[in-house]
Write a protein that binds this DNA or RNA. Structure first.
Lengths: 245, 245
DNA sequence: ACTATCCAAATAATCGATTATCTGTCAAGG
DNA sequence: CCTTGACAGATAATCGATTATTTGGATAGT
């Protein structure tokens, strides 16, 4: 469950990372659903990075009133996907090489820290969740020609990484990692629709997960670091190539 | 300037940490001013941790309409000071021993990381800002009997810590540190109105700052770690004593 | 007594209209 | 020409009223 807007850094009430992470369970307010839709629109690149968000147009596009629209945008600000300035309105956060590099760098720092803590503190429950998330991810197909598989894969991928560090017992840290993962996903969704040829991502995930449940701290952390680093490097290349900077 | 709501993780436009960090420059929208007032009310303890925020009452108390009130609360959610649940409304984030410990722990990790980066990358401008912030802080008085001096000291103290790490060139990291500092300040404001007898906080700050501009990485980082750690320990004691947990 | 169901008051969410602010354009003055 | 100021259109912010949801308490059934 990504949104994480049930409360700020709530002490992680979730029993097990709900598989149906992103389900729009119909039970929410318009504001929540809208936040969900907008988030997807931004992460998928449908709403271009850096572009201004005209409230009137958005209101009409999504068929909602201003109140829930602002509500939704406020949440995306917390997520770092939208920026805001008094009397100037909202705009989709820009992407840049520097931003990508920072995200990658911070992910390395924070996720490794959180993984280490998880291995130190995680219980059997956590181990089980990790193995499940791994299995589900590795079973999911990822066909660039079929967007719905990409979306599904992204969801499971994020779920995997979050589950991996979910045993750390640090809600705020988890919150930060979730944000970074979110930000990172946007770059991947926009620039990478397939895995680069020289990588076997499934295997990378397996190595990390197995090292984690075996409590092989150094090995698992090292694998994770490399994993994040490689993704960063690939993204950097693609960003430079398609280079809209 | 703390609020940091000019945009998500904006590439730090600020030339120098504006001394007038918190000035309510009158030029903002009602929502912004309200966010400012509410933040102060929460950090100062005026709004009790864990308490529910009744929109109607708040609306009347602050003499505003619902829209700006929700706007303001949305910002405090980003700050981690307020929690929210669909159809259930808002409440002031709770405090707890675990929460305090996490904040302290993460501050140690992140601020040290950011300080190290600042020392690696910071320019003369940064050095100057650090020395200025230090001077201003050490000159400020802090009299438990006069709340306005406490408030002022807190502002300068936050400013000092932020300036110290402002050279790191990592806007997102800075954003996270700012949040943690904010959260931490609430504990101090509520539980510590004076420095514990066995500490010379001014000297601690001086040591950190001087080590920083001298680029003595290990020394400065170590001093900062101890500084944060001591504060955490003190707060923990007071929390246990006045223990409303 | 205990639980379940329904109702009413309290509270949150949303809407449409109004007010305030900003932005770009054009004219007058230098 | 360039700058300055004023205007108009576009856009954001706010408000008051309406609608939807939740909560707590009363009632009926076991």
């Amino acid at each position: 469950m990504i949104p994480d807007h049930d409360g700020a850094f709530a002490p992680t009430t979730e029993d097990a990372p709900s598989s149906s992470g992103f389900l729009d369970d119909g039970k929410n307010t318009i504001g929540s659903q809208l936040a969900f839709r907008l988030r997807e629109a931004i992460i998928s690149g449908e709403l271009q990075a850096g572009s201004k968000i005209n409230l009137d147009k958005a209101r009409k596009t999504f068929n909602v009133s201003l109140s829930p629209l602002r509500e939704a945008l406020a949440r995306l600000i917390s997520d770092g996907l939208v920026e805001f300035e008094d009397n100037r309105g909202y705009r989709v956060s820009s992407i840049s090489l520097a931003n990508l590099e920072e995200i990658t760098n911070l992910r390395e720092e924070f996720e490794i820290f959180a993984l280490r803590e998880s291995m130190r503190l995680g219980d059997v429950e956590w181990e089980g969740n990790v193995m499940r998330a791994l299995h589900r991810l590795n079973r999911a197909e990822r066909d660039a020609a079929r967007p719905e598989t990409l979306e599904r894969w992204e969801e499971l991928h994020r779920e995997f990484h979050l589950t991996l560090i979910s045993g750390c017992g640090k809600p705020i840290l988890l919150h930060f990692c979730r944000l970074l993962l979110n930000l990172n996903d946007r770059y991947r969704r926009v620039f990478l629709t397939r895995t680069s040829g020289d990588r076997n991502v499934s295997q990378e995930h397996s190595e990390i997960a197995q090292g984690a449940v075996a409590r092989d701290l150094d090995y698992s952390c090292d694998m994770l670091r490399q994993h994040i680093h490689r993704t960063g490097t690939n993204l950097r290349k693609h960003l430079a190539t398609k280079g809209i900077l």
